[in-house]
Design a protein around this nucleic acid. Structure first.
Lengths: 255, 255
DNA sequence: CGTACCTTTGACGGCTGTCAAAGGAAGTGG
DNA sequence: CCACTTCCTTTGACAGCCGTCAAAGGTACG
């Protein structure tokens, strides 16, 4: 059973970090004023372009990738509904990755200056946006650490759990059988292995009763063993803020 | 030939992003007021602790690492003189890595609130500090992308070039024969391979006239081939800021 | 001079990549 | 609704890179 696609806005993401005032929500709603439909495979930006526009992802999945001259592609981020796209590259004079829509979807583009306005107008949103950026970074760091020390089965287990917890965070209706529009080739580009080996490993994991991946969905069958195999630690991706920060800015309330 | 250790302060790092006013330099000098000597092997923080203190690294090298329960260690960041330690974890309620001094050195600890003060007092420093944080993240991302797609020789080539360009950035006197206090075991923990294979690969690279690593230093012998093998792109770690940002904040001047 | 740690080497095995081909699934045009 | 094409998945055989185990040689330090 697969849940239907679900529309999510940035505040559904940022509110996990701290309580947003009505004014904060208003500022975010303004940001997401102009919506834009995007087709599967459409690129939001290319690696050489200067970052001028940021996006929120309302609906659909996207990923960022490095393209080497030899044609090999390496996926860096997977973006889910509610994610903010482009903060990582904001300070650089050029994007370092292409960003491609994995499915059709809806995005809200806005100029980078709007973000600077928000930084001046709302300390709470500033903090929440930084926390969201730090979380994206932590996701990549965790993947790096895990990929380097584990075999193919553990890599896949880790990535599937990452997806599961991230999706559950913005959509509580997500169950252990959840919709995933990723091909085995996408897994291979994310985890640094060949599609052949992804296929072999997925069949092995299914035979071991760990998980089942179909073309549209993933079914987690043994959560505990997946956690054990991959050494996945959900706390590394926690939404809680550092109390030192909220105490130093007493106007803020934790979520 | 190996250059002598060199004292560097954060402004030597941040001034690469944009011009710092006298006031900015004064704020940074205040930050680095209390210096503290640290011994080799000393830990600045542990993975479970709450981030309350940030550090600037004046002198010496450090690294951050994940420790798995089975005893395996994975190094994430290598910190060089001039680096700001702890911004990545700032928003999280707990550090996710241990930070250990690789050499003896000098650090300047300061409470996280001081950083918030700076954010309120100086837009230029705020931007420079964010750019520095984004740069640290880009270093990790580049390492991830390269490790996943390349063999041991290219991984080592990439990491050596990363060190070379980072050191040269804060100390212009660094030559192609530069001091590196890393053991082969440190390489192995950084690049996800065994010490045995690091040793084999280093000997192979020396036989091929690419580079030579001794206990204290690395000598780059064929820069062009190393760049080619590793697909290292120095522009991915550029100091230049996104012009969209400096134009939006007209009081700022590029470096 | 002795101890502890680091580096180097060799033999062997396993995980993963490469090459190749067949079977499925989805979309297109007739 | 049915061919046809295209892309994705699965499977097998084989090779190569890298991990494991083990031991010897170097280097730093007391």
């Amino acid at each position: 059973m697969v849940t239907a696609p679900h529309e999510v806005c940035v505040s559904d993401n940022l509110m996990h970090f701290l309580a947003l005032s009505d004014n904060d929500k208003h500022l975010l709603a303004e940001l997401e004023q102009s919506t834009q439909r995007v087709a599967q495979g459409q690129m939001l930006w290319r690696a050489t372009e200067q970052p001028r526009t940021l996006y929120t992802l309302r609906c659909g999945w996207a990923y960022s990738m490095h393209q080497s001259e030899s044609g090999e592609a390496q996926v860096l981020d997977v973006f889910l509904p509610g994610d903010l796209l482009g903060i990582r590259e904001l300070t650089f004079p050029a994007h370092s990755t292409d960003v491609v829509m994995l499915t059709s979807g809806v995005v809200c583009p806005f100029p980078t200056e709007r973000l600077l306005d928000i930084f001046q107008q709302s300390p709470s949103l500033t903090l929440a946006i930084h926390a969201a950026a730090a979380r994206q970074q932590a996701i990549i760091s965790e993947r790096l650490v895990n990929i380097l020390r584990h075999d193919a089965r553990a890599r896949i287990a880790h990535f599937v759990l990452e997806l599961f917890f991230r999706l559950k965070r913005v959509d509580d209706s997500v169950s252990r059988d959840f919709s995933v529009p990723l091909l085995q080739r996408d897994f291979s580009k994310l985890l640094g292995m060949t599609t052949v080996h992804v296929s072999r490993t997925l069949r092995e994991m299914e035979a071991q009763g760990l998980l089942r991946k179909t073309r549209q969905a993933i079914q987690i069958q043994d959560l505990d063993r997946l956690l054990e195999i991959s050494a996945f630690d959900p706390m590394k991706l926690t939404d809680q803020l550092n109390p030192s920060l909220t105490e130093a800015l007493p106007s803020l309330e934790p979520a």
